[in-house]
């Protein structure tokens, strides 16, 4: 589905070049839930942006849905959920969800149908006519996910979508996201800096470390596809979490900490 091969990315800044990604290789299969985890500056968001064709790698090869990422972007092969909900204040919830559909030129009948479907999917029924400021942070982020789902792309790229929310809301949305993933069978790439979130959600955990941004470990999760919050107390869960923590630590050893 997504293949990243030997990708290097260097940003030219006023303080000299910054090596954001170094020799990054990764395979994401259809239906995978992949988490990118690591400290800030490890390039996890940059990697997601490379897949989304929002950044162009300096070196290396990226294939998304059998095409170069920029073609995939133009073909609207993925939905992207940003850290902030980024809803337009002058549009209602349903107006915001319709925005990408308008841009993509869907008929008004189809716009209505799709909006209705994704609003039910993210459990925002009854809030269609509300403006963003009338919603809580969690509901805004759900609307933002609905907007990314509205045009039914196979891939969902999420950049710390719940990073700004409190833990209780985050747990709930994580549960909902898992349900949604199961129902829609999408391929999800998910950036986070929370170990429990990464382990709870993913089928594959990609551990990254900074300066230069690189992958230090890829963990295939043995957890079953159907998960409840209680799974976090299981032995497997704790073992994976430990391995992630080890991976994060080993990344730091290189910098004489």
């Amino acid at each position: 589905m997504i293949s990243v091969e030997n990708v290097d990315l260097t940003f030219e800044t006023n303080d000299g070049p910054v090596h954001a990604l170094k020799e990054v290789s990764l395979e994401v299969k259809e239906g995978d839930f992949v988490s990118f985890i690591g400290p800030s500056g490890c390039g996890k968001t940059t990697l997601l942006r490379v897949i989304a064709a929002l950044e162009t790698p300096t070196k290396g090869n990226v294939i998304v849905n059998n095409m170069p990422p920029d073609d995939a972007r133009k073909a609207r092969e993925y939905g992207y959920v940003f850290q902030a909900a980024g809803l337009y204040p002058w549009r209602t919830v349903s107006g915001n969800i319709k925005l990408p559909l308008e841009i993509m030129g869907y008929s008004s009948k189809e716009k209505e149908e799709r909006t209705k479907k994704v609003i039910e999917l993210v459990e925002l029924k009854g809030f269609e006519k509300k403006f963003p400021w009338q919603l809580s942070g969690g509901m805004q982020q759900r609307a933002s996910i609905a907007r990314a789902l509205a045009f039914d792309a196979n891939i969902l790229l999420m950049d710390e979508p719940f990073g700004a929310l409190d833990e209780i809301v985050r747990d709930r949305l994580n549960g909902e996201l898992l349900k949604l993933w199961e129902r829609t069978s999408k391929t999800i790439c998910f950036v986070t800096h929370s170990i429990p979130e990464a382990v709870y959600l993913s089928t594959k955990i990609v551990v990254m470390s900074p300066r230069p941004g690189r992958i230090t470990d890829v963990i295939q999760s043995p957890l079953p596809k159907e998960r409840t919050l209680e799974i976090r107390d299981s032995k497997e869960f704790i073992q994976i979490a430990q391995r992630v923590r080890e991976g994060l630590k080993s990344g730091h050893l290189d910098e004489d900490l």
Partner: peptide, 24 residues
Amino acid sequence: QMQIDQMRTWSASPNQLLWRLRFP
């Protein structure tokens, strides 16, 4: 930048970017 990137992920045309985001 995030709002502009968001428009890019939908592959919005410059006109759509202007009328739906910049102008409002």
